[in-house]
Design a protein around this nucleic acid. Structure first.
Lengths: 181, 181
DNA sequence: TTCTTGCTTGTCAGTCACTGACATCGGCTC
DNA sequence: GAGCCGATGTCAGTGACTGACAAGCAAGAA
């Protein structure tokens, strides 16, 4: 990962949030550890929380790309699960960053709020992708919401305990879901 | 509704947010219109957004009470829908306040974020209530999330257009859901 | 080389959300 | 009346976030 001001800010943020907590860490302190000014922090991130949620954009792109490679006759939820499985390597690679990050989020209501918003946005984007494949509106929204809820649940559990792996957890979740419906 | 500082603050908030928008309204202005100090505002509401989300607590209580009155052998989702229907009069009565309130929320990302958080909290509470009735953990969480998603969707639609009424919309949503599963 | 253009950052001043500490006031009880 | 308590006012302070302007720096045109 390029050593840009942006990435240094993200790393400094997880570190400091982990040490002192989100609320007891000022944006100025994060900036100082990253070797830049507070003003620069806010040029890269819209607000103090956002510094932890940069990855969502990358994840979304990867998911959309994955969906593109799935034959359009696959069922909606099946499509989503295949897409989820295809981004597991990405998440695996990011674990060293994601794990402490999730610990901070779990300890901070304000960050959980932001995470919910990001998840909802992701679900909306997936629904849109399904619609583009011909899935009717309601079904697309419904499948996307269910799929994202399961995916979010699985990844959070996995970040707390690395075994079993992500793909195994996804397999099991998909099975559980099928028996439940 | 008693004319307390609290209720005056809530009314002043919807009014001002409606006129100037959430971001262009300061907490001090809301307080001034309500005839109190900014400090008093923050004694009643944890933050500027919270002034719009007081009703959730009332709603939750009503839902839990309704669930208590439903025979425990009813299926989880059916229980939730019966509870939702039983709070329709409450929502109907609150419409004069809720409608402009929802308009402001729809126009303000920060408020949508808070609304997601409140909805999630409500879902968690409903899941807990289902568990207390003997529904196994996973099913309870699943049913609560689905139910709340549908309920939230229905009420938002209804606030945009009052016809058909809430109960009719809930009936249709429950039917749609059944055919979908 | 030199000039220019554009991107990134620093600096500074300002607004506003939010908090803690302390004083005040009105009603209630004894 | 004395004392208590809950709601409010006052004041000072911290920190998130923004707009305006200047400075540096790299890449390409002249």
């Amino acid at each position: 990962m390029a050593d840009t001001a942006r990435t240094r800010l993200q790393q400094a943020a997880v570190d400091l949030f982990g040490e002192r907590g989100f609320d007891s860490t000022t944006a100025a302190e994060i900036a100082a550890r990253a070797g830049v000014t507070e003003r620069t922090f806010f040029r890269h991130f819209a607000d103090k929380r956002e510094v932890l949620f940069d990855g969502q954009a990358v994840l979304l792109e990867a998911l959309l790309a994955a969906i593109d490679d799935i034959p359009p006759d696959a069922p909606p939820l099946g499509t989503l699960f295949r897409a989820f499985r295809s981004v597991c390597p990405l998440l695996d690679a990011n674990r060293p960053f994601s794990e402490p990050r999730q610990a901070v989020i779990s300890a901070t209501p304000a960050l959980q709020e932001r995470e919910l918003a990001k998840t909802a946005a992701l679900a909306a984007a997936l629904a849109q992708a399904l619609r583009a494949r011909g899935v009717p509106d309601d079904r697309a929204a419904f499948a996307a919401q269910i799929g994202m809820a399961v995916f979010a649940h699985v990844t959070v559990d996995w970040l707390e305990k690395s075994e079993p792996g992500l793909t195994d957890r996804l397999d099991r979740a998909e099975q559980d879901l099928k028996t439940l419906l």
